[in-house]
Design a protein around this nucleic acid. Structure first.
Lengths: 111, 111
DNA sequence: CCTCTATACTTAGACTATCTATGTATAAAC
DNA sequence: GTTTATACATAGATAGTCTAAGTATAGAGG
C-alpha cells in the first residue's frame, strides 16, 4: 500500500467483509472499489486479495458463486454469510479498541 | 495483543520510537510502559520487542548503551537518533493517512 | 488479422514481523 | 534456598503481505 504492507495485516479482512457486506462483489471489483473509495490509497494486489478471499471463504465468512454473463466473462461473486457478519462486528470492535490503545500512547507528547 | 497479532504489524516501530523519543528506555521498561499507558491493551512479548529493538538499532533509528547500576542489574538503554526522529515523523504521517483511508471505507454503511 | 489493453482469476515463492518457547543471569522476598 | 521479578537473547513456527508469473476472454486500434 501507500505506506508499506505491514499496516494492512489484520485490517484487510475487515475491509473485505465490510465491502461484501454492503453488496456482493467479485474480486477484481473489490480491488477497484477499495482504490476508488479510499481516493487511491488502497491498491490491493491480486496476490493479496484472492488468497484473502479464499481464506475467508474457507472460514465460512463469505460464499463465492461463479456467474457467467451473456456478454461472456466469468466472475466469482462473493456473498457475506451470517458468520461473516458476526466476524465483521467482532473485527470492527477490535479495530476500535486498537485505535483507543494507539491514541493512548501516540499523540500524548509524540511530535 | 488483545486483538490478535496482525493489527500490530507496522505500528510497533512507531510505538517504540514514540516512547524512546520521549525518554531513553530499556527493553523491559518499554514493555511495562506500553502495557500501563494503554491500560493493559499492549502486551509486547520479549520475542517481539527485543528483535524489534535490534532491527531499529541496526537501521540507525535508535542507539543502545549498556548501563550498570550500583545496585547491580545491567540494562540496555535506548536513545533515539536524529534519523529515528525523522523516521517517527514519517511513520506517524503514514499512520494518519492509513486511518483516513480506513475511515473512508469502514464507517460508511458498515454496521 | 494481429496486437495491445483491460478484465478476471490463480498460485508459487520470497519476505517480514509476529508469536511461542526456551535459555541465561541477577536481585529481592519469603 | 526456593520462588518471583527483573532483564536480555534467540531459534523456530506461523501468517499475511508482496513479486512475479501464468491462464483466459473481450474490445479497440492498426
Amino acid at each position: 500500500m501507500a505506506t508499506g504492507p505491514e499496516l494492512m495485516k489484520g485490517s484487510s479482512e475487515s475491509l473485505l467483509l465490510c465491502l461484501i457486506g454492503q453488496e456482493p462483489m467479485y474480486g477484481y471489483q473489490i480491488i477497484r472499489e477499495l482504490e476508488q473509495r479510499s481516493q487511491g490509497y488502497f491498491k490491493f494486489k491480486e496476490g493479496t486479495l484472492y488468497p484473502a478471499l479464499h481464506r475467508s471463504e474457507g472460514a465460512g465468512l463469505i460464499m463465492g458463486r461463479w456467474q457467467t454473463r451473456p456478454g461472456g466473462r466469468y466472475r466469482r461473486y462473493y456473498y457475506i454469510t451470517e458468520k461473516g457478519r458476526r466476524a465483521l462486528a467482532e473485527k470492527l470492535s477490535q479495530w476500535r479498541q486498537f485505535l483507543v490503545a494507539m491514541n493512548l500512547i501516540v499523540p500524548a507528547g509524540c511530535l
